[in-house]
Computed example of a mutant assay.
Amino acid sequence: MTEGLRVTKAFLGQFLDHKGARLGLLALTLFLFLAAAPSPLVGPLQTAITATGDFLAPPSSEHLLGTDEVGRDVLNLVVHSARISLMIAMIATVISLIVGATVGIMAGYYRGRVDVWLMRLTDFFFVLPSFVLALVITPVVLEVIGRGGDVLGFRPSLFVIILVIGLTSWGFVARIVRSQTLSLRERTFVDRARVVGSNDLFIMMRHILPNLVPQIAANGALVVANAIYTETALSFLGLGDPLQPSWGTMLFLAQHAGAASAGGWWYLGAPGACVLIVSLSFVLVGNALDDTGNPRRRAIP
C-alpha cells in the first residue's frame, strides 16, 4: 500500500509539473463548477416567457454577454448549457472507453481469429469518421423511438446522441489497448497467474487492465474533446433538443435567428468559445497524461 501511494504521488507530482496540465485543469475546474451549480450563479434557465432583455441586445452591465433573439440572457444560457454539453461528452466517453478497452483487451489477449474479427470491426469504426456515422444513425434512431418523453433523465434526442457518439468513437482506443495488451500478455506476472490456475477473465481484469489505465486515461481525455465537437456539430445541425440546451443547440438557434448577419457576434461567440476552451483543455490534460505515463515521451527533450 505504501509503495502504491508513493508511485501515485510521484505520478501526480510529474503530472502537475506539466504546464499544459495545470492550464487545462484550471479551465476544466471552472467549467465543471459552472455546470454543477448553474442556478445559484445565474438563476433559473430563462425561457421566452421569463426573458428580461431586448432582442439581440449587445453586451452591457445588465447582460454581460448580451441577449438572444427572444431577449434571453446569453450568459444564463451558456452556463446552463455547460451541464448538458459536458454531461453528454462525459457519458459518451465512458461508453466509448468501455467498448474500446473491452475489444482491445480481448483482441490482444486471445489473438488468432478473435483478434482478426475484432480488428476488422474496429477498422470499420476507425476508418469511417464517428461524426459521419453519428450524422447518419441519429436521425434514423430518433425517427424510430420518437422525441417525446425521456430516457434515463434525458430527452430521446440527447440520449440518442450520447449513445451514438459512445458507440462510434471507440476505434482508436481499441487499437491502442490491443497493442499494449499484446506486450503485457507476454510478461512474467501473466505467466505466473496462468501457472497458479487463474482464468482468462481474472488475468485480463486483475493483471492486464490496471497496467492499461494510464493509456486509457490519456486517450479518454482526447475522446472527451472529440465527443464535445461531435455533439456540438450534431446539435448545430438541428439534432439537439432546445428544451435541454447545449452549446451546440445555442449555435443552431443563433444561426437560425440570423445572428451573424444581424451583427450578434456575442450570441455565436459565447458558446463557440466555450466549446473551443473546454476541448482544448481536455487535449492539454490528455497530452500531459501521455507525457507523464509514457517513459519514451518523457525522454524526449
Results as ranks from 00 to 15, higher is better:
Glu69Cys: 15
Thr47Trp: 00
Ser60Trp: 11
Glu69Leu: 15
Thr47Asn: 01
Asp73Lys: 07
Gly66Ala: 14
Arg72Pro: 02
Gln46Glu: 15
Pro59Gly: 05
Gly66Ser: 12
Leu65Arg: 08
Gly71Gln: 10
Glu62Phe: 14
Gly53Cys: 05
Pro44Leu: 05
Thr67Asp: 15
Ala35Tyr: 01
Thr47Gly: 01
Thr50Asn: 10
Glu69Lys: 15
Gly66Trp: 04
Val42Phe: 00
Asp73Phe: 07
Phe33Asp: 12
Thr67Arg: 11
Ala48Phe: 07
Pro58Ala: 10
Leu65Trp: 12
Pro44Lys: 03
Phe55Gln: 15
Val42Asp: 00
Leu34Met: 02
Ser60Phe: 12
Phe31Asn: 05
Gly66Glu: 09
Val74Gly: 06
Glu69His: 15
Pro58Thr: 05
Leu32Phe: 04
Leu56Lys: 11
Gln46Tyr: 12
Ala36Ile: 02
Gly53Ser: 10
Phe55Leu: 14
Ala36Met: 03
Phe31Asp: 01
Glu62Ile: 14
Leu30Thr: 06
Val42Ala: 01
Leu56Ala: 12
His63Gly: 10
Thr52Gly: 08
Ala36Leu: 08
Leu34Glu: 00
Ser39Ile: 05
Asp54Asn: 12
Gly71Trp: 01
Ala57Arg: 08
Leu41Val: 09
Val42Met: 02
Leu75Asp: 13
Leu56Ser: 11
Val74Pro: 03
Ala35Gly: 00
Thr50Val: 04
Val70Thr: 09
Gly53Thr: 06
Gly71Asp: 12
Ala48Arg: 04
Ser39Met: 05
Phe55His: 15
Leu41Met: 06
Ser61Ile: 04
Thr50Ile: 02
Gly71Lys: 07
Gly66Leu: 12
Leu45Cys: 01
Leu34Lys: 03
Ala57His: 10
Asp73Ala: 06
Thr52His: 08
Leu64Met: 11
Ala51Asp: 06
Leu32Glu: 07
Leu64Cys: 10
Gly53Ile: 03
Asp54Gly: 13
Ala48Cys: 09
Thr50Trp: 04
Leu56Arg: 07
Leu65Ser: 10
Ala36Val: 02
Val74Ala: 03
Leu45Ser: 03
Phe33Ser: 14
Glu69Ile: 13
Ser60Glu: 13
Leu64Lys: 12
Leu45His: 02
Pro40Lys: 05
Val42Glu: 00
Ser39Phe: 03
Pro38Asn: 02
Leu32Val: 00
Val42Trp: 00
Glu62His: 15
Ala57Trp: 13
Ala37Ile: 00
Leu56Glu: 03
Pro40Leu: 07
Ser60Ala: 13
Pro38Gly: 00
Leu32Ser: 01
Gly43Phe: 14
Gly43Tyr: 14
Gly43Thr: 14
Ala37Gln: 02
Leu32Tyr: 03
Ile49Ser: 08
Glu62Cys: 14
Pro59Glu: 01
Ser60Gln: 13
Thr47Cys: 01
Thr67Pro: 14
Glu69Arg: 15
Phe33Pro: 11
Gly53Val: 02
Thr47Ile: 00
Ala36Lys: 01
Thr50Lys: 10
